[in-house]
Every structure is written in C-alpha cells, then in structure tokens.
Design a protein around this nucleic acid. Structure first.
Lengths: 225, 225
DNA sequence: ACAAAAGTGTTTACTTTACACCCATGA
DNA sequence: TCATGGGTGTAAAGTAAACACTTTTGT
C-alpha cells in the first residue's frame, strides 16, 4: 500500500497506432479482458510505472497487449477530464504511431482478450473517452501529413507512386491529380526511384523509396516564413 | 492521508506565458518561495487538484502566483522524466499562452515570492527541467506562428504594421521586407485598417485590427493539400 | 532642414492547378 | 484484344521575392 498526504491521480499511457493496408487507414484496438468496460474495444495502453517515462510505459503496454514493439511514438495530448474513468481519477497521456501493418503480426497479450485492426471510418463502440482521443489523433494526423512525410512509416521500404497517392487520398479524404502528385513528390527530392519494378496487374511500375538523409538536409535548411 | 494499492505520481500544470512589450518577447516567471529550488526562478504552476482538469489547475495556479487570469491556455506537452522533481515522481502538463503584457499587472501571490517578466533571450537559471520546457515552448511558438496568427494575442486591439512586423521578426529571428510583409498581411484579409492613426515620432501610421470573423471563415474553407 | 517612421509598385521567379493521351504487361 | 494500372507535358494563374524612393509629422 502507498500513502500520500494529498490525493494523487493515476496516469496511463494510450497508443493510437495507425497502419495502412493498401486500401484503408486502420487503427489498432484491443478488446478489454477486464473491468471496467470488459468486452469493449479500447486503445492499447495502461498504467505508467514509477520507474518509466510515459513513452516507455506506452511502449511496454503496447507490446504486452498487442505484440507490436520497437516503434516510434509521438506524444500528442494528455486527457484530464475528471470523470473519464469510473474507478478513480485517471489522466492519460496519448501517443500517436504510424507503422507498416504487414511488419507486425498482431497478437493479443495477457491483459487483452484480443487485438485487431479496424478501418478508421468504421470503428466499434469504444471504452472510456477513447472515441474523443482517436478524433484528436485523426485531426493531428490530417494536419501533420500536410507538412511532414510521415506516410513513409506506413509504407514498405519501396512503394509505388499509386500506393503513396492512395494514402494521401485516404488521409485527407479527397482525390488528387496523379500527374501533379507525381511531379510534386519527385520534386521534393526525398522520394527517389529505385531500379526495381513491381509486377502485377497492368503495366509494371517503378518502385520508389524515401531518402531520409535528403529529407533531414531539407528541414535543416528550410525557411519558415 | 490517501492510500492506494499501487504507487501514484503527482501531476502538476505549468504555464509558459509569452508577452511582447514592443521590443522583446518576454516570459513570465516566478521566484520560488518554497523548497525545493527556493529562490530560483520557475514557471508558474502547481499541483492539479482532484476535482479540476489540468487546464483549470493551470489557470488557478497562474492566477494565484502571478495575478494573471482569464487567458487562453494551450496544452503542448507532458513531461514525465522519472527524476525531474527531487521530492517524488512528478509529471507536469505544460501549457502555452500569449497575452498582451500591458493588460496584466503582474503581482506576486502567496506561493511565490515574486513574479516578473524576462526577455526570452536573457533568462535566469531555472528550477527543475523548466529550461527544457521553455525550449520546447519556444520551438512550438516559432513553428505555430508560421501557420496561425497567434501574434494578435500579443498585441493591442489596434496596432501598427511595424509592431506586427517586429513581433514576427523577434519570434522567427530574422529581418523581413516591410513592403512584402505589408502586402501579405493585407492580402490575408483578416488584418484590416481602422480609421485611427497613431501619432508619435515620425509620420503617423494607420492602426490595424485583427478581424477574427474573417479568419475563422478562412480556416473553415482552407485546402490542406 | 532634418530625423524618424510610414507608405507604396513592378519585375522576376517559382509554385500550383487544370487537364488527356499513350504505354507496358497479363489474362 | 482487352483490361488494368503506369507514365508523362504544357499553359495559365497565383504566390513569393527582390528591390528604393517619396511622404508625413515632430523637433
């Protein structure tokens, strides 16, 4: 038992993990195996330990509950509404992540009955205020994508222009001109063609890759105004 | 005394309050009247109560410690390094604010020996990890100013073009062309001239104001890609 | 008259948008 | 040969950048 002179809140970390399967933008959810909200879907996450940062806690819980590990998490908001958890005062620090869906075989862990991908435009009922958290994460993603090439975390090392275009279209929710998009991406300098071609239905396409070096050079030199 | 089965962290809210005095960008700090770091300068803030949100706590502490009240706070990051407070595990939710320096007579409150404005390029030694918090706040401000007209919170209702330009120059740290700046601001549509002129040294200048209505219309219609 | 700050216009370069036809492959 | 998806160019409009002299006021 732990005692304090003043009341203390609990603090959790929750992860909003996005992935792209070629068609739709998906979100990783777990089916809660314990009360409260047992049986409901929820964001992976849990209580932060006293010897770990919020980010470490988020990564640990994510791994325990879904098997997903070794990813980059970005903190985006802390939710502190007084009654957001029926048990006690719980604040949650929310994180965003973008991963390649195929790289991770999602497996349910101890705490959660199961983990599963859901398309963001067709989510189930959610525990706690997780619907609100996801809304804010989506807003952040839609804004961030306009100035940071985070979509590359969602794609394989090499990808076709059409795959890249599809992600942008899905995230921002409207169609883009294929010619202008192609031109723009190549002109940016950090999307570079490889020698490989992809075979399949239709004419084989060039596979491109993201040149992180060139991107870093650019952001260091960029003018803000 | 309050008892829990698992250990709980303390959670504080800290405020990074910016203002502009016509020459330099300033930051509101308090001189700590209590241990730890008694006598050091620190961000206004304190422990969040169990019946208030982080934002309410931040506003309450800010008012208690500095007399500044009724302002808009924006949450920007939560700091969770394990040893950031020598007393116990303390996480802090940090907020940003932009105010008109003249609108607030800064007065020291109970908790703090005194409150004072410091130019951001000449800050004193700071308690805890507040230097790091301020660095992140400044980065956020410099980035945010490029896409959101938050400088209007720092100016009086009416202002000259030169004042507006000076803020931009101070924040982004480089000189801007007066002609292009003037053109751009007027073309944006939400910086509108008034009938008033400002007298003083040199030729009298037009006073402008920020048309928040027009700004809101624009962001609702804007294209992200 | 001079010092101090305000006001203003044009040219050039760059960026963005709109728009449609042909090509390479597999079935 | 057909279906599928890949590749590409140009003109027009809009936006951003560079650049310097004149005006109004107070002293």
């Amino acid at each position: 038992m732990y005692t304090y002179e003043h009341p203390h809140p609990s603090v959790t970390a929750d992860c909003v993990v996005f992935a792209f399967d070629g068609k739709s933008l998906n979100l990783l959810l777990i089916n809660r195996g314990i009360e409260p909200y047992k049986g409901s879907w929820a964001l992976p996450g849990g209580f932060i330990h006293m010897d770990e940062t919020a980010e470490d806690g988020a990564l640990r819980e994510l791994k325990e509950e879904t098997g997903v590990e070794d990813i980059y998490l970005e903190q985006f908001h802390t939710f502190t509404t007084v009654d957001r958890d029926p048990r006690e005062r719980v604040m949650t620090i929310a994180f965003l992540a973008f991963i390649r869906q195929d790289d991770y075989s999602v497996v349910a862990g101890d705490d959660a009955a199961k983990a599963q991908w859901f398309p963001v435009d067709n989510l189930p009922e959610l525990a706690f205020d997780h619907k609100e958290i996801i809304k804010m994460a989506l807003d952040k993603l839609r804004w961030k994508i306009t100035y940071e090439p985070l979509v590359f975390h969602l794609l394989n090392k090499t990808f076709t222009m059409t795959q890249l275009l599809t992600i942008y279209e899905v995230v921002i929710g409207k169609e883009l001109d294929r010619r202008n998009f192609n031109k723009k991406m190549l002109q940016l300098g950090y999307v570079v063609p490889t020698e490989e071609r992809v075979q399949g239905v239709g004419r084989p396409g060039t596979l491109y890759m993201f040149d992180e070096e060139k991107y870093r050079e650019q952001i260091n030199n960029r003018n803000v105004f």
